[in-house]
Design a protein around this nucleic acid. Structure first.
Lengths: 215, 215
DNA sequence: GCTAATTAATCAGTTGATTAATTATGTGGT
DNA sequence: ACCACATAATTAATCAACTGATTAATTAGC
C-alpha cells in the first residue's frame, strides 16, 4: 500500500512514456508494447493501472490538458481585470501572452511532442477532444478575444474578432506544426536558437499592431 | 492490353480511395482492406499495381504534390515577372495568391482531406516529405517571399522575410488544421459559407498591409 | 498470510503480403 | 469468322507477424 510511491511511479512512467510516444506517432501507430518498454514496465501494467490502451490515452490527454492550462497560466490570466484602461495596456497584455505562447510552441523536446498530439486531436478529433476544447482552446480564444475585441472596439463574439483570434493562434501554432519547412528554408539543422526566437516574437508582435477600431 | 482503360481505372480508384482514407486517418490507421473496399477492388490489386502499401502511399503523395502545384498554379505564377513596379502591384499580386490559398484550405471535401495528409507529413515527415517540400512548400515560400521581400525592401533570404512568409502560411493553413475549434467557437455546425469565407479573406488581407520597409 | 504489484505466457483478431486459381482481353493463324 | 493461346487483371485463400487484451503464476510489502 505504501508501495503507492512505487506503484504510482509505474503509472507515472506509463503516462510519460505514452505522452512521448503518442505525441511522436499518434494513437494507432503506438503499441502497448512500445509504451511498456519505454516505461521499463510490462504490458499488463497498462491494464492494471488504466484498464486499456484507450483509457491510458484519455488519462494522458487529461494530464496534457492540465499541463497546458498550467503552462499557459490560463487561470492566472483569467483572474485578471478584463477592463482595459488603454489600447497600449491591452496590447501590452496581449504581447505578454503571445510571448509565452510563442516560446512554448517553438520550443522543442517534451512540450513539442505532446503539443503535436494536441494538434492531431484538433485535426481529427477523438472522443477526448472536448477535454482540450473546453479546458484549453476555448479559454485561449476568450483570453485573446477580450483583448483583441477591446482593441478593435467590437464584441468578443464578433465574427471578425474570432477570426482574428484564430489567425493569431494559427501564426503561433505553425511554428510547431510547420517547423520543418521553416528550418529547412532557413538552412538550420538545429532548432530555434534565441536569436531566431526573438525574430519570430517580433514578427508576431508586429501583427498585433493591426488590431484597430474600424475606420 | 487496351484494357489499360479498365486497368488504370482500378489503379486510379485505388489511388483515389487511398487519398481519401490516408487523408482522413493517416498511414498506419488505414488498412489495405479499407482501401480495397473503398475502391470496390481487391487487396491483391494493391500489390499488383503498386507493389505494397508504402508504394501506394508514395504514389498518392506524388499525385497530391502534382495536384497541389496545379491547384495553386505554381507554374503560372513562377513564370510571371518578378520585378514589381510598385508596392500596390506587389500587394495586389500577393492578395490574388493568398485568396486562392485561403479558398483552397478552407474548402471542405476532397481537397481538405488530402491537405490534411500533407499537414501530417509536415508535422512528422516520412521518406515522402521531400516530394512535398521541393514540389510545393519551398516554391510557395519563394513565391510569397519575393513579393513580401519587395514590400519590405529586403532580400528573399532575409530571416525576417522567411518568418513573415511562414507566419502568413500559418494563418492560412490553420483554417484547415484548426477548423474545428473555429467553427465551434462561431457556433456553426456547417462548414465555411461564402459570407464567412469573405470575412476570413478580408482578415488575412488586412495582415498583408503590414509588410512595409523598415522605418 | 493477506493484498498490491509485476511478470511471462497465451488468446483471438487483425495486419500487410503472397499465392495459386480464375476470369477477361486481345493477338495471330487459318 | 472462328478458334486456340498468351497475357493482363482479378479474385479468394492462406501466411506469418503483430495487435490489444487476458490470464495465471510469481514476487514484494505490511
Amino acid at each position: 500500500m505504501t508501495k503507492a510511491s512505487d506503484s504510482s511511479e509505474t503509472a507515472g512512467k506509463l503516462l510519460a512514456a505514452g505522452m512521448k510516444l503518442f505525441g511522436e506517432r499518434g494513437f494507432k501507430a503506438t503499441t502497448t508494447r512500445m509504451i511498456a518498454d519505454q516505461a521499463n514496465s510490462n504490458i499488463g501494467s497498462i491494464a492494471y493501472y488504466f484498464g486499456n490502451k484507450r483509457n491510458l490515452y484519455r488519462a494522458i490527454l487529461t494530464h496534457i490538458s492540465e499541463r497546458m492550462q498550467d503552462k499557459f497560466r490560463l487561470y492566472d490570466i483569467e483572474r485578471r481585470d478584463h477592463t482595459f484602461r488603454s489600447p497600449e495596456q491591452a496590447r501590452g497584455s496581449l504581447k505578454e501572452i503571445v510571448r509565452l505562447l510563442v516560446r512554448t510552441f517553438a520550443s522543442e523536446g517534451e512540450v513539442g511532442q505532446w503539443l503535436l498530439l494536441v494538434m492531431r486531436e484538433q485535426a481529427d478529433p477523438s472522443d477526448c477532444y472536448d477535454l482540450l476544447y473546453e479546458g484549453v482552446f476555448d479559454r485561449v480564444y476568450t483570453i485573446l478575444g477580450v483583448r483583441i475585441a477591446y482593441l478593435m472596439e467590437k464584441s468578443v463574439d464578433d465574427v471578425d474578432v474570432v477570426i482574428e483570434c484564430h489567425t493569431l493562434i494559427g501564426q503561433i501554432v505553425f511554428f510547431l506544426v510547420g517547423r520543418h519547412p521553416l528550418l529547412r528554408r532557413l538552412k538550420r539543422e538545429s532548432g530555434f536558437d534565441e536569436r531566431l526566437l526573438e525574430s519570430v516574437e517580433q514578427t508576431v508582435f508586429s501583427h498585433l499592431e493591426h488590431y484597430r477600431p474600424p475606420t
